[in-house]
Amino acid sequence: MRRMPLIGLLSVSLVALATPALAEFKPTKPIELVVHGAPGSGPDTFGRAIVDALDKENLLPVRVQINNKTGGSGQTAMSYVVENAGDDHMLAVFTMLWLSNPLTVKEANATIHEMTPVARLVLEPALIVTKADSPYETLQDFIDAAKEKPGQLKQSGGSITARDNIMRQILMAETDTDWVFISFPGGGERLAALLGGHVDLLMMEPQEVGEQVRAGSVRVLAQVNDKRLPEYADVPTLKEAGFDVPNVPQGRGLVAPPTMSEDAVAYYVDVLRRMSETPTWKAFLDRNQMDQAFAGPEDTKAFFDSFVADMRVVLTAAGVEIIR
């Protein structure tokens, strides 16, 4: 056993010899991947897909361990990442919740802006749907109806800081209309409210609502995406449907604790870039109908900043109190 460090030292120096100049980073112990959801939740599934792809494609010399830091609507995980400043063996899955929460929640004292951006990996498009037997054939039909009966049409969705409400606010401002947004905590409940005819409109990721489209129980009015999804080639994007509004993005990727060394960041960015091109990862994206959207640290940071700036405007317009 006592010989081990020597061998380790030797191999490190060999690597150093083989790759001159850069004092390159290599992980030396298992990497901790923090996710803010319980096992089986969205962020957890996403994290496990990353671990799966890294594993199957042999992209890392060490194991990656998922750490479910649940609670505090993401805040427990965010505080944990900030507390571990300087740790080169920790990464965390971010979702848009990590950006929107600190804007409205007083207790959210750890923000994503303190962390080190690593990579955005995917963007999720969304579909705007109505019940198959509803009178609205196009989004314009719905908007017209909303104009006729202000405040009477209903949309089911998640929290008011979630993307579906932000898109609603933008559309209402653009068309000078007004309809109600009813929050339901679970995706199943949102869908059930639409299918039961209790609400008129729903905006949802294709993975969640796709089967209803295929079975003909809902009608897709528009897609929230820059270009048409292959599976929904006959459905107009918002712009094509005549609404020149920004598509509020829904992105996921990885961040690292504050002050992670530059070498380590560069290393992870490289690994993740290679991972995003592997068949295992692409199969995961296909299955979940997510868009490949790899972006390096600078672009990821720009993505954060522009999203938060937009959110501020929209939430203020919606009358939501902005804390920070």
Binding site: G71, G72, Q75, E107, A110
Partner: peptide, 14 residues
């Protein structure tokens, strides 16, 4: 999106 009775404790947000 407001928190209630959390007494400033992030762990109680859920």
């Amino acid at each position: 999106a407001q928190s209630r009775f959390t007494f400033g404790t992030p762990a109680l947000l859920d």
